[in-house]
Amino acid sequence: MTSNQAKKLYQKGIELLSYGKSDEAVNYFREAVESDPLCMEAQLELGYLLGSMENYEEALKCFDDAVRLEKNFPGLFGKGMCLFFMEDYEKSLEAFLDAQGYGENEDLWYYLGSLNLIHSGNYEGAINCFDIALSIDEDFVEAWNDCGTAYSILEDDENALVCFEEALNIDPDYKQAIYNMGATLADMGRYSESLMYLDRILEKEPDNFKALFYKGNVLYFMEKEEEAIEYFTKALEIDKNQAELWNYLGYVQFSLGQNHEAVESFKEAIKINKDYETAHINLGNVYMDLGKDSLALSCFEKVLEISSDNEEAIKILSDLGHHNRRL
């Protein structure tokens, strides 16, 4: 086929895409690329369409082929996005930085912020990138939410709330921001307000594990222990392989004097994560309350095997009149 025929196939793909017929459009873009590998437009359009279908490996090949023809912003940015979703963060960053040499947009700054947030742990850098993305598009809901997440990690709850509120002003049903509002308000001790947001999630998704877990925590801090256990139990029905959840459940059971149930919960936490210091300590405390000092001793000695400088375990062992070899 000639390049003119390839362009006709490309134009047919664009037409189908405008009607929402993505699967058919992909076939036309593929034919265009096969007939003329130098058709840059088809390479790029095929890459972005395959990426939207989560076919990242084939999409990456399209962008690599396009960049070999000519280095440009769409090709390098598309390559960076594919690598990002394939969790090859180092190469993704390289591609995005290369793309910066040819242009920029709000999406580029958003993904640079995301890499700082989830890959390098540079939270201040993430906030800076999200701010630039928002200066280009002030209605970028994901950027507002993720900027709030970075502030939360930095324990700047006031700025986090501002970001989550901005996200919800743009999209009142944006689930991540609703959850994050609930979690942040809980961290600030504003429990009643927190429950309003967590309940909004659970009204739409009764089996949302994170919302059930966090609501259990909030209810415990509101001294509603029985209700907290109810929500922890609901969360466990969804996912039993969560050591932290078993530990929280055991802690609340212990606070209610349900010592034998607490023992079983802490044991489940340790079964999932044998080096879970807090669960070993909590189990030891329950054993002490039950008068089983020898079992308690084993728990605290295990803590010192995991972390030889754990002050709580050292103090309790000293109080029990025992001296671990590491002391």
Rank of each mutant, 00 (worst) to 15 (best):
E158R: 08
N159P: 02
N159E: 08
N159T: 04
A160F: 01
L161P: 09
L161C: 07
V162P: 05
E166I: 07
N169S: 14
N169M: 14
D171S: 12
D171M: 04
D171P: 03
P172H: 07
P172C: 02
D173H: 12
Y174P: 03
K175W: 10
K175F: 09
K175A: 11
K175G: 08
Q176C: 13
Q176T: 11
Q176E: 15
A177P: 01
I178W: 04
I178S: 02
Y179C: 05
Y179L: 10
G182W: 05
G182E: 01
A183M: 07
A183P: 00
A183N: 09
A183G: 00
T184F: 03
L185N: 04
A186S: 13
A186N: 10
D187N: 12
M188W: 04
M188K: 11
M188I: 02
G189C: 09
R190N: 15
Y191M: 13
E193M: 09
S194G: 05
L195I: 04
L195C: 08
M196Y: 14
Y197L: 07
L198I: 00
R200G: 01
R200H: 04
I201L: 02
L202V: 00
K204S: 14
E205W: 07
E205D: 15
E205C: 11
P206D: 13
N208A: 13
N208M: 09
N208R: 12
F209L: 11
F209V: 00
A211S: 12
L212K: 04
L212F: 06
L212R: 05
F213D: 10
F213I: 00
F213K: 03
Y214S: 10
Y214D: 12
G216C: 02
G216I: 01
N217D: 09
N217V: 08
N217M: 08
V218T: 10
L219A: 03
L219E: 09
L219T: 05
Y220S: 15
F221Y: 15
M222L: 15
K224N: 13
K224P: 10
K224T: 09
K224E: 15
K224W: 06
E226T: 12
E227C: 06
E227S: 08
A228R: 02
I229H: 01
E230S: 10
Y231W: 02
F232Y: 08
T233D: 05
T233P: 03
K234Q: 15
K234H: 14
K234L: 13
A235L: 05
L236E: 07
I238P: 07
D239W: 10
D239T: 08
K240E: 13
N241D: 14
Q242C: 11
Q242Y: 10
E244Q: 11
E244H: 13
L245G: 04
W246E: 00
W246T: 01
N247C: 10
Y248H: 12
Y248R: 11
Y248G: 08
G250W: 06
Y251V: 13
Y251L: 11
V252F: 04
S255E: 14
Q258M: 12
Q258D: 11
N259M: 13
N259F: 14
E261Q: 06
